[in-house]
Amino acid sequence: MTTMKARDLIEAAAKDVYVVPNPFLDLLEDGRVPRDRLAWLAGEQQWILKSDQRSFALLAARFPESLAGEMFLSLSGGEIEAQRLLIAYGDAVGADEAYLQRYEPRPMAQTYPAFVTWSAVNGTLSGITLAMIANLGIWGAYCARTADALVSRYDLSEDAVAFFRYFSEAPPGFQKQATAAVQAGLDAGEDPAMALRMARAMQAYEMAFWHSLAEDL
């Protein structure tokens, strides 16, 4: 049986998973998101970052092969750096350390990291990696829009939006590493249909995060 090529699977995922209308960002770009929601964004992100840091470390332990293991460890380290950058954004929107410590996350905003954790335990290598390839492009586009709107509409400094600039592009070398990891999973006999299913699910949970922030606005 001929093994499916990673690039073909990535192309198939791109047809299923793409940037869609984002009501929160539409409001943000119009300057209609109240300041308390900007603080929510910091609060939700601190929970997501800490969860993803652990999930990526778990993935590195599950898939320690050089390329995959290195990729997941790098992503885990990236979450640590992002937590540092989030501090400046939080301070700029009234979400200081005390606010973040008492912040209660909204369940629907946390479905994305919950799925990443599920994937770290139960998912396939090709599935979680394909999902991240597809999602990072979407998340990156949303982060770029967020940073631009916060600067132009809310007068935040570039230092304050460095968190969103950080995520606006994929980490250096990620695409090459991720493509190799997808291929390794497929070569091991993993089901490409499962990989596509995981990619579609991750986008749905990504959008649940943004819809939660826009609720009742």
Rank of each mutant, 00 (worst) to 15 (best):
150 L>C: 03
181 A>I: 00
132 M>C: 12
153 R>G: 00
92 A>N: 01
104 E>N: 13
123 G>K: 02
25 L>A: 09
110 Q>W: 00
44 E>A: 03
159 D>Y: 01
75 L>R: 12
64 P>I: 00
24 F>I: 05
195 A>G: 01
206 E>V: 04
167 F>M: 08
65 E>Y: 00
14 A>T: 06
94 G>S: 09
150 L>Y: 04
119 S>K: 05
193 A>R: 08
39 A>P: 03
167 F>S: 06
91 D>N: 14
150 L>I: 04
20 V>L: 13
156 L>Q: 05
150 L>W: 03
72 F>W: 08
156 L>V: 09
120 A>F: 09
97 E>K: 15
51 S>F: 02
217 L>I: 14
162 A>D: 08
18 Y>E: 10
87 I>D: 11
23 P>W: 09
24 F>T: 06
150 L>D: 01
45 Q>T: 14
179 T>A: 14
70 E>M: 14
217 L>N: 07
98 A>V: 11
3 T>E: 06
62 R>K: 13
15 K>Y: 07
173 G>C: 02
187 D>S: 07
183 Q>D: 04
194 M>L: 12
133 I>K: 00
139 W>I: 09
24 F>A: 09
184 A>E: 06
6 A>Y: 10
83 Q>G: 14
14 A>L: 01
4 M>L: 15
172 P>H: 08
52 D>M: 15
86 L>M: 01
210 W>I: 02
176 K>T: 10
143 C>E: 07
24 F>N: 08
208 A>G: 09
55 S>W: 00
186 L>K: 01
149 A>T: 08
206 E>Q: 11
184 A>P: 00
202 M>K: 13
4 M>Q: 15
76 S>Q: 08
215 E>L: 15
107 P>M: 12
113 P>D: 05
179 T>F: 07
102 R>K: 14
106 R>Y: 10
160 A>L: 02
55 S>P: 02
85 L>S: 08
145 R>Q: 12
73 L>D: 03
93 V>S: 06
190 E>L: 02
216 D>W: 11
103 Y>N: 01
153 R>F: 01
115 F>S: 08
77 G>M: 14
201 A>H: 13
109 A>E: 11
200 R>A: 14
70 E>V: 05
3 T>F: 04
93 V>Q: 07
81 E>H: 12
217 L>Q: 11
115 F>C: 02
167 F>W: 12
111 T>A: 13
172 P>A: 13
155 D>H: 15
167 F>D: 04
138 I>A: 09
154 Y>N: 07
184 A>W: 01
107 P>W: 11
127 G>Y: 06
150 L>A: 04
3 T>R: 05
91 D>T: 06
42 A>D: 05
165 R>W: 10
200 R>K: 15
101 Q>E: 11
205 Y>I: 05
217 L>R: 07
104 E>Q: 15
